Simulated assay, not measured.
Amino acid sequence: MLKRKKVWGIFTQLTFLNTIIIAIVIVIAGFTVKNYACTLVNQQEITGTDLEILLNQYLVKVSILAFILAGGFHFILLKWLIHPLKKLTAATQELQKGKRPTKLKNPLIYEVKELNDAFNELSERTAIIKAKQNRLLRDLSHELRTPLTNLSGYLEGLEKGVIEGDQEMYRSLQEETARIERLLEQLGRINQWTPDGEMKNFNHEEILIHELIKRRITIFHVKFLEKGIELDYNIKPFTLEGSTDGLNQVISNILQNIVDYDNGKKVRIDGCIEKEHYLIRFSHKGRRIPIEESELIFERFYRVDASRSLVTGGTGLGLAIAKEIVQAHGGDLSLVTDSSYHTFEIRVPIPK
């Protein structure tokens, strides 16, 4: 309905402008014929058949001139309208070929301006998506290359007899295999919670969020002990609606991130109601994260470490997946940091 109104608006404007042009030409032609007739009768005193012949000849000339003027105005008007559409067509063809077209300037016609704005936004989004795809492929290649190179080196050494297998080596091979399996497993989950993913219409169930968090803490208890991390928590009881598996994964991914990057040996977890959301905070002192990069850590494959070594952390997908799951629940996952003390905040809407 909206598109029809816009199209109708363009046709209305064109019809109105053409009508004005034709009316002006008719009025000019009418006054010209009238003045010429008055001149012939009053000044030259021509009447009868001679007057009729002269008027007919003059009317033909005026009609031709009026046709040329109306056609010229109409041509200029159409060219003024079609020119930005031609630019838009050319830009669309460039976009179709995989190129990034230059930003289109907005014409005076409102409807075409709206179309240009929509195309410019589409072009920007396409460029961003393409850049993210290229980065995803580049990072994925990087993540897989290291463990595969290690596996290949070990196996080649064993085959040629350069090295001998022992328990420590087999453990290293198992770790490299586990790293690849973990990466592939998370890649399989990475788009499940997006708007077009498998879990977009997940079943909502009642969840005792305080019990869910405590169960996750229990599962990570051994890891915290091994790292010497002291855990303190205060979680208010509440019932949410959502996916138990999804929220379990969110809590697990954040706790794993804390285990991998904690420096302060102390973690605080709080859960409470804040306005229309249930708020969960995970606070600890960890490895330095520049404040300007606090949102980037939720990007896929992003790491603060320039080396991007898997030894210093996971696959670079855990927080990205966690954020997508929370957003699928209508909430948000964010990081508040002063570069050394970090607080992950999960906000999940309270059922109405």
Rank of each mutant, 00 (worst) to 15 (best):
I26H: 08
S123N: 10
R189A: 09
E295T: 13
I258K: 02
E94S: 12
D139I: 03
G228S: 05
T19F: 14
L140A: 07
L225P: 00
S63R: 05
Q44D: 13
T47M: 11
W193A: 04
H142D: 08
K266F: 12
L255G: 00
Q327C: 03
L247I: 10
E168F: 09
I207Q: 04
E111D: 07
C272M: 14
N150Y: 09
F344A: 03
I217N: 01
R281K: 15
L310R: 15
Q43V: 13
L240D: 01
H74C: 11
K105P: 00
R125W: 04
I26M: 14
R179S: 12
V41F: 08
E205K: 09
K132H: 06
L51V: 02
G197W: 03
I280T: 15
A178L: 11
E345K: 12
N201C: 04
G242S: 04
L225V: 04
G246H: 02
L212F: 03
I273Y: 00
L158I: 09
A131I: 00
T218F: 08
M169V: 15
A118Y: 07
S123V: 11
L78Q: 10
E276V: 10
L14I: 14
G316N: 03
F73G: 15
D260Q: 11
F119K: 03
D260E: 13
W193Y: 14
H284A: 08
K97H: 10
E168L: 12
V41A: 12
T218W: 04
G314L: 01
A127V: 05
I280Q: 02
N120W: 06
R171Y: 08
C38V: 13
A91Y: 06
A29D: 07
Q96G: 03
P107L: 05
T315E: 09
L115I: 12
V60K: 10
S172A: 15
K34V: 08
T146Y: 15
H342T: 02
Q327D: 05
I217L: 15
I273F: 00
Q133K: 14
T126N: 11
K6V: 01
R287Q: 10
D260H: 07
E176P: 01
Q186I: 03
C38T: 13
L95R: 12
R308S: 09
I213M: 05
G9D: 07
P349I: 08
H142P: 00
H342F: 02
Q186S: 07
G316Y: 02
R179T: 09
C38K: 14
L65Q: 07
L136H: 13
L279R: 14
N150M: 09
K86I: 14
G330Q: 06
F301W: 06
V25E: 06
D262R: 00
A90C: 03
H221A: 15
V60I: 15
L78H: 08
L69T: 13
I209A: 01
H329Y: 03
F344S: 03
Q327P: 00
A127Q: 12
